[in-house]
């Protein structure tokens, strides 16, 4: 189809829309540089005092640390469980396994507020409220389906005859898994781990319900800061988060490029 006038017009519109999606977040940068004590745009003079406060305040630092611990643990646990499960579902590959797959994807599609309710309901009697274990478990259940998806996508391009060949040559199940299957689905596993990390690092709705004082993650502290709507330290934190997002994005882009290359070979 030859691009007509409409198509050109739409092209420009699409660019405007895409910029509309990305640019609003950038306002955090000037606001974080304001020399004033309240949220405002800087006028002429800039100051790094809010970044200084962010990186010296015990509260913010502990939130960074706690979010880091929870996100890394979630990512490891979700990747382990999700990868094993994806391989299992791929090997079984029956009507029942597809049913189980659908069941395991539910945490992704059920509204977060309902998930939050469910965890809150169960964590009270289990004594998991406001604890690292409680948050890591909840985040793992929400993140494992992501790993399941990315690893399953990798497995879809894996030739099952390789597995058969490995077994015929005398390798045990475990050796086949470690030396044949895992190396070829590595990109999917890493992508899943990264998604799981981001999900946990960014999670707020479930966290709001199941954490209180002891565990105060970064999103939780930002949520409070946004609600109070006065302290510009929130803007500095937002800038740091944008920077981390961009770094994670570059890593994932490199991973997916490597993935595409591996598939081409």
């Amino acid at each position: 189809m030859k691009p007509g006038l409409f198509s050109h017009f739409n092209q420009i519109g699409a660019w405007v829309l895409l910029l509309f999606l990305v640019t609003p977040a950038l306002i955090a940068i000037p606001v974080s540089l304001t020399p004033k004590r309240f949220l405002s745009m800087p006028e002429g003079t800039f100051s790094l005092r809010h970044f200084q406060k962010l990186f010296t305040s015990e509260e913010w630092l502990s939130s960074f640390f706690q979010s880091g611990v929870i996100a890394v643990s979630t990512s490891l646990l979700a990747t382990l469980l999700g990868t094993l499960c994806a391989i299992g579902l791929w090997r079984v590959s029956s009507r029942y396994s597809e049913l189980v797959r659908a069941l395991l994807l539910l945490p992704l599609i059920i509204p977060q507020i309902i998930s939050a309710m469910a965890f809150y309901r169960l964590w009270i009697p289990m004594g998991l409220l406001d604890s690292y274990a409680g948050l890591i478990l909840a985040h793992t259940i929400l993140a494992a389906p992501m790993v399941l998806i990315t690893v399953s996508a990798s497995l879809a391009t894996f030739d099952p005859r390789l597995e058969q060949a490995s077994k015929n040559l005398g390798a045990s199940n475990w050796t086949t898994m470690r030396r044949v299957i895992l190396p070829s689905i590595k990109p999917g596993v890493f992508a899943g781990a990264l998604f799981a990390f981001i999900l946990s690092w960014d999670e707020i709705v479930v966290t709001l319900f199941i954490s209180k004082f002891n565990v105060y993650t970064l999103p939780r502290r930002m949520w409070n800061g946004i609600r109070e709507n006065t302290d510009p330290t929130v803007a500095a934190a937002a800038v740091v988060l944008i920077a981390i997002t961009l770094i994670a994005f570059v890593i994932s882009a490199i991973l997916s490029r490597r993935n595409a290359k591996a598939e081409a070979e």
Partner: peptide
Amino acid sequence: SILVRTFS
């Protein structure tokens, strides 16, 4: 992050 966007 959804929080960053909402803040913006």
